[in-house]
């Protein structure tokens, strides 16, 4: 433990109002902490520069998973374990379940939260590609009220977010895909479990009459932020599953990503493997489309 604890302050409000009031009184001063699976690592290493922590773990307003008509709503404090176990999530949003399954190990999944995975803003986070693939929206709250933003416009740059200093992430709304769609999630990590991703690709598609009518591809670890593969999507959208221009999409995805060399992998590997995984996803899409 390298932190000098007396330098740190923690407030632990019992209600959302209390928390928001504190945030609005001293905007930017308080760093929310939920499951602690990211921030406590920094604290232990003596690298947590935020000295004032707002423990939001007691805010029941931010808990729970509910089906609201066309979408599933996740409170920001929903843990990975809760995501994995919830019947509606398992039925409608298999990519979310899979991304929760491959995040850390059981001990992390019991503590880490979906909201934390989003606002920690790591490009290597495992759930954001799934949320991007399903076209999630996120809801932010402050004393000024609530607002909803498409998740794909939330990350503005490396560790930069569309999040005001007085706002908390309240919930995540994920539309339930219509009909039997195509779901694909693959994380390529440094090992088979308890790993950080080197590249990650989630996709969801809706096929009607043998044509790809809807497609979203979410990517992790290949750009400063979790990102959509817009160019690759554009190549495939509206095409017949029997004649998917897979190699064109594989070329196109190169302009969607800007990977780097770091201690976990190389830019070259990330480029090639992201393309390979996309090819695998699209081949599966073609097979699924033909079978349906």
């Amino acid at each position: 433990m390298r932190a000098y604890l007396p330098d740190y302050d923690i407030q632990s409000p019992e209600t959302l109002d209390e928390a928001l009031t504190l945030l609005s009184r001293e905007p930017g001063k308080w760093r929310p902490i939920a499951g602690g699976t990211d921030l406590m690592v920094l604290l232990n290493a003596g690298r947590l520069s935020d000295l004032n922590l707002l423990d939001i773990s007691r805010l029941t307003e931010l808990r729970g998973i509910s089906e609201n008509g066309p979408s599933v709503t996740f409170g920001a404090l929903t843990t990975y374990s809760e995501l994995r176990q919830h019947p509606a999530v398992r039925e409608h949003l298999p990519n979310v379940v899979e991304s929760a399954r491959v995040t850390g190990a059981q001990a992390i999944q019991n503590r880490g939260t979906l909201g934390g995975n989003i606002v920690n803003a790591s490009p290597a986070a495992d759930t954001p590609p799934s949320l991007l693939a399903y076209g999630a929206e996120i809801e932010l709250v402050s004393v000024r009220g609530k607002r909803r933003v498409p998740y794909e416009s939330f990350h503005k740059g490396y560790k930069k977010m569309d999040l005001a200093p007085d706002e908390l992430l309240h919930s995540i709304h994920v539309p339930i895909p219509k009909g039997s769609g195509f779901h694909f999630y693959r994380k390529v990590g440094t090992r088979q479990a308890q790993a950080i991703s080197k590249t990650c690709l989630a996709a969801h598609a809706r096929i009607e009459n043998g044509v790809v009518e809807e497609l979203r591809i979410g990517l992790g670890s290949v750009a400063p932020v979790p990102a959509r593969a817009r160019s690759a999507e554009a190549v495939i959208l509206g095409k017949a599953v029997d004649f998917l221009p897979i190699e064109d999409a594989v070329k196109a995805i190169q302009s969607d990503i800007s990977p780097i060399d770091d201690i976990r992998s190389t830019a070259r590997y990330r480029r090639v493997v992201t393309a390979n995984v996309l090819r695998q996803a699209l081949e599966e899409l073609a097979r699924t489309g033909r079978a349906s």
Binding site: R191, Q192, A193, Q194, I196
Partner: peptide, 10 residues
């Protein structure tokens, strides 16, 4: 986290 030794599933 970054020096990769095998886990039980590797």
């Amino acid at each position: 986290t970054n020096y990769i030794i095998p886990t039980s599933v590797d």
